[in-house]
Design a protein around this nucleic acid. Structure first.
Lengths: 230, 230
DNA sequence: CGGGCGAGTTGAACGTGTTCAGAAAGTGTG
DNA sequence: CACACTTTCTGAACACGTTCAACTCGCCCG
């Protein structure tokens, strides 16, 4: 499977160049992990990768672009881990819980410095924002996972809601990420508790959505989503 | 009424010092508005304020801390505008809608460059994050508004939910802000549409929360919130 | 052969946020 | 007034992200 790069760098021509890129990324990830995003300097990264400062900028147009390699890596890891879950589980709640839990596990090694990355989430001018056009591919790949979560399950929800569910679950995921970023508990257990608590709620809400009394509100929600999509 | 500073700078001793602080803030706001956060340099701000670079750092420990003045200003404006609404309206939906709409109006002049500010929202290491301990005061002041929205209204919700409602509405507010930051429509009309659409939904959901079928889920939500609060 | 071309590489240089040792101005105290 | 002490102020200096003109190297074409 090809890498889910969010914003594509100029495609490397030679294997040699590809190799150099990988070396720089590895050095960057290493320094990010040990020194944090701010603490890792471009000069340090270039040194660690055995290239000059200018070369680092030849391959990556800036420090932020090095993050995208990180994003892509994490997304790939999550996708393959999620697949394993989705191959074995059929119950909706178990599928959703599995996919979310697995994200927390995949992201765990980066928890300490992830905050400095996800800062960009709220910056509409940054191409790194998960809502930006440049992140459309990554977003699509992510919602595809949740589409799979829904479609491969036995979940019964109001018919109007069903097509919107993947997006909504992606949004839930984003909320979880925000919580996770601020979660200082050991092993991010509070985030795991949030998942354990929230998933059954979503499950119940899904079932409730078919009740006549509730269906009205649900349809309103869907209508609002439709409107906001243009 | 005293200013709702989020993180307090060392309290100024003399009126002269207070004056200098105000001059710097004014210069900063001006340059932020015209050149954006990144485009405005500390040297430029110091020059515009007629002080040296070092002096700017004497009064404000860094560029980010200048943002807090901005936050405080906006919060004050919102609070007084919200009060006007809350004095005239008694219907819950109208009160909520008014408070949220008024925020959009108050924030409108800063919309263009607000994104660079709200970046900090997702950064757990920044004291500027609305979830940080340093922002506790500002957060409390903000939730107080929503407490007022609830308490001054005729809203009937499940009893377990009621004490949690202000926090939840504050969270809704944060969500609206995130949407607003990414909203490029003229006059932020999409955000206003979101408010117009979401408020009746919240209203309906509140009423539904008293139904026996729904109350179970609502209690689960509240229990989860209780747990996450420690 | 050579000469041109483009990919890859380099470090000096620029503008930035921030720090800091010390100067200047103010404020009491004898 | 003289002296100490604190508050206020200053710009040079530092490390950083980023840019760029110049360089090297391998390769193809005439």
């Amino acid at each position: 499977m090809t890498t889910l790069t969010t914003v594509s760098e100029p495609a490397p021509r030679t294997p040699k160049a590809e190799q150099t890129r990988a070396t720089i990324v590895a050095a960057a990830m290493d320094l990010f992990r040990t020194r944090g995003f701010e603490g890792a300097t471009m000069r340090g990264i270039a040194d660690a990768a055995g290239v000059s400062l200018g070369s680092a900028y030849y391959y990556f147009s800036g420090k932020e672009h090095l993050i995208q390699a990180f994003y892509g890596q994490m997304q790939d890891d999550h996708l393959s881990a999620a697949r394993e879950v989705l191959e074995t589980e059929t119950d909706f709640a178990a599928r959703l819980r599995g996919v979310l839990t697995v994200w927390v596990e995949v992201a765990a090694p980066y928890h300490e410095f992830a905050g400095t990355f996800f800062k960009n989430a709220a910056d509409p001018t940054s191409p790194l924002s998960p809502f930006s056009p440049e992140s459309a591919d990554a977003r699509a790949a992510s919602t595809a996972i949740f589409r799979d979560v829904v479609e491969g399950s036995d979940l019964k929800v109001a018919s109007s809601l069903r097509p919107r569910l993947p997006e909504l679950l992606w949004l839930l995921h984003m909320g979880m990420v925000l919580f996770w970023v601020h979660d200082r508990s050991p092993g991010q257990e509070r985030t795991l508790a949030l998942v354990s608590g929230a998933v059954p709620l979503v499950d119940k809400l899904g079932r409730l959505s078919r009740l006549p009394v509730v269906r009205g509100v649900v349809n309103d929600v869907v209508a609002l989503l439709d409107y906001l999509d243009d």
